[in-house]
Design a protein around this nucleic acid. Structure first.
Length: 223
DNA sequence: CCAGACGTTGTT
DNA sequence: GTCTGG
DNA sequence: CCAGACGTTGTT
DNA sequence: GTCTGG
């Protein structure tokens, strides 16, 4: 956890978490490297698209991207400290998937409501690549054009509690609306990093979810 | 001092 | 076995 | 998280 | 960029 989730009630997320701007597309199979809606501390009332897989400030490319960041050490680790201090975010979801002995399970809140997971984000500007060939350099952009800056994020994890602990020892940090506001606006909301999960229900789902390119509503149906 | 790491997950 | 791509 | 690739030569 | 290891 957490390496796959679903988000299909963005309107409910808006209502519960006070998100008034931005777009959020529905997905039943959100996977790392995809562009997904998050809410960033810089703009706590809007969905913003970011790529799942935080590229640390010192890294040149995606090969050092991190899907998760451990809450226990988030404040100290070089890869995440700066992001924790200045660039937190929350990641909206209706539920998440967990694999156990090769079988996928879907977890959602017992009350069926969507929630948000604690995250951190980091901007990443790819190395400007020089072709050295005039015929390519003249194809629209100046030779010293700054490459497009991407925004990348990681989901914060903690020790699993409750039903999830029977399946995995790690789980995403889930925040209720008040906690989400604090995560996005407080100076040092370290107390939120030692959470207990809300009541969750779990059900076995189809192995169709294994393939991260498959996206359809019945992925969350019980089997 | 410089070199090299810098991180997470699970390991049916 | 390990890395990349989604 | 899982799935799928993982490579070379010369090439009109 | 910054920290750790040697």
């Amino acid at each position: 956890m957490c390496g796959r989730y679903a988000l299909f009630s963005p309107a409910d997320v808006r209502e519960r978490y006070g998100v008034v701007d931005g777009e959020a597309t529905v997905t039943y199979n959100a996977a790392p490297s995809q562009s997904l809606p998050v809410v960033a501390s810089a703009d706590p009332e809007a969905f913003t698209s970011m790529e799942w897989g935080l590229v640390p400030p010192w890294a040149d490319d995606d090969s050092d991207a991190f899907v998760n960041a451990r809450g226990e050490t988030l404040r100290e680790k070089r890869s995440f400290r700066d992001a924790y201090e200045r660039r937190r975010c929350v990641v909206p979801a209706d539920g998440f998937y967990e694999w156990h002995d090769g079988t996928p399970y879907y977890f959602e809140r017992a009350d069926g409501r969507p929630f948000v997971m604690a995250g951190v984000w980091e901007p990443h500007t790819p190395e400007t690549t020089q072709t050295g060939l005039g015929e390519f350099a003249s194809a629209g952009d100046g030779p010293n054009r700054t490459a497009e800056t991407r925004r990348t994020f990681a989901v914060v994890t903690a020790e699993a509690t409750g039903a999830v602990a029977d399946y995995h020892h790690r789980a995403s940090v889930i925040l209720d609306p008040d906690e989400a506001t604090r995560w996005l606006t407080a100076d040092d909301p370290a107390d939120l990093l030692d959470p207990s999960l809300p009541d969750l229900s779990v059900r076995r789902v189809s192995t169709a979810v294994d393939d991260p390119t498959v996206d359809r509503p019945d992925l969350v149906d019980p089997v």
